[in-house]
Amino acid sequence: MSGTRYAQFCALARAAEILGERWTLLIIRELLLGQKRFSDLSDRLSGVSPTVLTTRLNTLIESGVVRRVDLPPPFNAQVYELTPIGQSLKPAIRELIRWGGHFIFPMRPDDEFDPDWGLLALDASARRTPTPAHKIVLRIKHKAAVASFLIEGGKAGTTITKSDGPGSSIIETTFDVFLPIISLKLPLERAMAEKRATVEGSLRIARMLPRFFDRSERHR
Results as ranks from 00 to 15, higher is better:
V52C: 10
L25G: 02
N58I: 05
I27Y: 07
L32I: 10
R128A: 10
F103A: 13
I28S: 05
T129H: 10
A77E: 01
V69L: 09
S39R: 08
Q78R: 13
P109V: 11
E95Q: 14
G101R: 04
L33F: 02
E112R: 15
F105S: 07
K90T: 09
V79N: 00
F75G: 15
S88I: 10
I28H: 10
L120G: 01
L41Y: 03
W99Q: 13
S42A: 10
L122Y: 01
D43N: 10
T131D: 03
T51M: 15
R29Q: 11
L33M: 02
A121Y: 06
V69G: 04
L41D: 02
G86V: 08
H134C: 10
T83W: 12
P106M: 07
P130K: 07
G34C: 00
L53H: 11
R108T: 12
R98H: 09
V65L: 02
S39L: 14
G118Q: 00
S125G: 12
L71T: 07
A126H: 00
L41G: 05
P106G: 09
G34L: 03
G101K: 02
V52S: 15
R98F: 04
G101H: 03
A133S: 15
A133F: 13
Q78I: 13
L89V: 07
W23R: 02
P132N: 07
N58P: 05
P91R: 09
F105M: 14
P72L: 06
L26S: 09
D114G: 00
P132Q: 07
M107C: 13
A121R: 04
I28C: 04
L96D: 04
F105G: 07
